[in-house]
């Protein structure tokens, strides 16, 4: 009797576990089904390789997302240029320089940073970073790719810091001791032994940070100016994939090509982040295996 009951309970929990697989698959399939009708009207190659995005043009609408992809990559890479050195530096400080007491205080500070809602960061992009950039460069409003990069850097910092710190922390003690015993000072040990040993963990952290930056919506929507054209420099306004969805989904009539094309952009985003997650997963898995030996 009780065995039947146990089996039923176990099956229920199993179904519950299966739910996440179904959810992920469901997201993918729903995006796909809603995206596919786009390509009845738009050629796939045009969608990917054309820079011009103008779905509501009077005469001939065009659906090219290239400029958005470039914009997304621009702000993302810009954010990484800022966040990766800063993040690794902070992680190294926390793991190698800070005293335990300082670490106790500093770690929550990084966590608090992670807790600030993205819309608040975006707001600060408008009221704080924008004017600063405008003043420094003579740019009109300061709402441009640079602004977005700075904000995204702030947003991906906590991820990069905490994962890099984990990676540095899991470098076996024997490595560092060997380096110190050979006469290396702590700095040399950090630069030549610990960081290289932790490099794949740090790389995985960077890719996760990148995934978050690519998918971030509100900050870029608010702070990058949203001009749907091919950007030429960091001081020009850009419009990312996420921002396009956020701006246009509210106004578009449902089940038109325009509506479906927004799902197609969502699908591209999904695939981007999926690949980044998968790759960072593989890197991390290999890294953990290696560190265990």
């Amino acid at each position: 009797m009780h065995r039947q009951k146990e089996n039923i309970i176990k099956s229920l929990f199993f179904l519950n576990g299966l739910l996440v697989v179904i959810a992920l698959l469901g997201i993918f399939l729903l995006l796909l089904f809603n995206a596919l009708p786009t390509f009845k009207d738009v050629k796939f190659s045009e969608f990917i390789f054309r820079a011009n995005w103008n779905p509501s043009a009077y005469l001939e609408s065009s659906y090219g997302i290239l400029s958005q992809v470039v914009s997304t990559l621009m702000v993302t890479i810009g954010s990484l240029i800022i966040a990766v050195p800063l993040g690794i530096g902070t992680a190294a400080y926390l793991s190698d320089v800070a005293s335990p007491r300082v670490r106790e205080i500093a770690k929550p500070i990084v966590e608090i940073l992670a807790g600030i809602p993205s819309v608040v960061i975006g707001f600060l992009g408008i009221v704080l970073v924008g004017p600063l950039i405008a003043k420094a460069t003579g740019n009109y409003s300061g709402l441009n790719a640079l602004n977005g990069s700075v904000l995204l850097a702030v947003m991906s910092l906590p991820t990069i810091v905490s994962l890099s710190e984990d990676a540095l922390g899991s470098v076996p003690k024997s490595y560092t001791e060997a380096s110190l015993a050979l006469g290396g000072n702590p700095w040399q040990t950090l630069i030549r032994v610990k960081i290289p040993a932790a490099s794949s963990g740090i790389l995985a952290a960077t890719m996760l940070g990148m995934g978050r930056a690519i998918g971030e919506t509100m900050t870029v929507l608010m702070a990058t100016g949203n001009a749907p054209a091919m950007p030429k420099s960091f001081l020009e306004p850009v419009r990312t994939m996420t921002a396009t969805i956020a701006i246009e989904l509210g106004e578009v009539p449902y089940y038109t090509t325009h509506f479906h094309s927004l799902f197609a952009i969502g699908l591209v985003l999904f695939i981007f982040t999926f690949i980044l997650n998968l790759v960072s997963d593989i890197i991390l898995h290999r890294y953990e295996k290696r560190m265990r030996v």
């Binding site: 997201i27 998918g215 999904f270 997650n277 997963d281």
Partner: peptide, 15 residues
Amino acid sequence: SIRNLSGVPSIVYGL
């Protein structure tokens, strides 16, 4: 799946 779900952009959840 769990790791990937946590990586899906919030706007995609919106879609």
